[in-house]
């Protein structure tokens, strides 16, 4: 479980998160929606200990992000998939996926590679294992990014607008992978602008605006019985 407790985040004078409180239950898929600049990326970066929070607390499976000794453990349990892939350009797809498992989890090369090949197969890229990122399309790179995150066996998968840097004709192949994962009960927090996709896969939806959490509802209520007029308008606008 991930508990966000009254979190503030400032960059200098700029307040990016204000008094955000919410919980993510195990096995749930939560979509985080909201306009650009709302603080969605910042929130999941704070969960992953990539950013320090300014106020409040975040606990991942009971461990506080404020406890420096727990940072490594929290990062092992939460894996990020990045908007711009952030693949290591000097390593092949296989190398990208096996680096952290061998160095951080201390798996043997053989074990890590077997797992990596299994994951590549799952996303339909088993024949591109020896390619470098520069030799892959955006959709392929992002599928490798998903494999890289899954290879850590994370309890919580954090996905930040994973299709927004990909050509439209290639988003489907990435979304299909995520949808499969959702079906398998992987806990996911996914920031997205793909409203139809969120409707299909999300159990719950959080809506953020200007650093605040405006709504956190089950997906059915959010999409089908939205009482907040501004959110309803946002949903409507995103559909087109």
């Amino acid at each position: 479980m991930i508990e966000i407790d009254n979190v503030d985040k400032h960059y200098g004078n700029l307040q990016v998160l204000s008094a955000v409180s919410m919980q993510f239950q195990d096995g749930e898929v939560t979509a985080i929606l909201g306009p650009s600049g709302a603080g969605k990326s910042t929130l999941i970066r704070c969960i992953n200990c990539l950013e320090l929070i300014s106020q409040g607390d975040i606990r991942v499976d009971g461990m506080s992000v404020l406890d420096k000794h727990r940072t490594a453990e929290i990062q092992k349990r939460t894996s990020m998939v990045f908007q711009h892939f952030n693949l290591y350009p000097h390593l092949t797809a296989l190398g990208n996926i096996t680096l952290a498992p061998t160095k951080v989890l201390r798996q043997s090369r053989a074990q890590a590679e077997a797992k990596a090949m299994e994951l590549l197969k799952m996303v339909g890229l088993e024949n591109k294992a020896k390619r470098y990122p520069a030799e892959l399309s955006g959709g392929e790179q992002q599928r490798v990014g998903i494999c890289r995150a899954l290879a850590m066996n994370p309890r919580h998968l954090l996905l930040d607008e994973v299709t927004s840097a990909i050509d439209p004709e290639m988003t489907a192949e990435v979304l299909r992978v995520i949808e499969d994962l959702a079906g398998q009960g992987t806990t996911m927090i996914l920031v997205t602008h793909e409203i139809e996709f969120a409707r299909r896969v999300a159990d719950r939806v959080a809506f953020m605006e200007r650093g605040s959490l405006v709504a956190h509802q089950d997906a059915d209520t959010f999409f089908n019985r939205q009482s907040d007029e501004r959110i309803a308008r946002f949903i409507d606008k995103m559909k087109h």
Partner: peptide, 22 residues
């Protein structure tokens, strides 16, 4: 790029490992 450093950090790699391998 800061992105690959972020990626390494997000998977719990140590400062030394990020330097050495990324």
């Amino acid at each position: 790029s800061k992105g690959i450093v972020d990626a390494g950090r997000s998977f719990g790699m140590s400062g030394y490992q990020i330097y050495r391998y990324l």
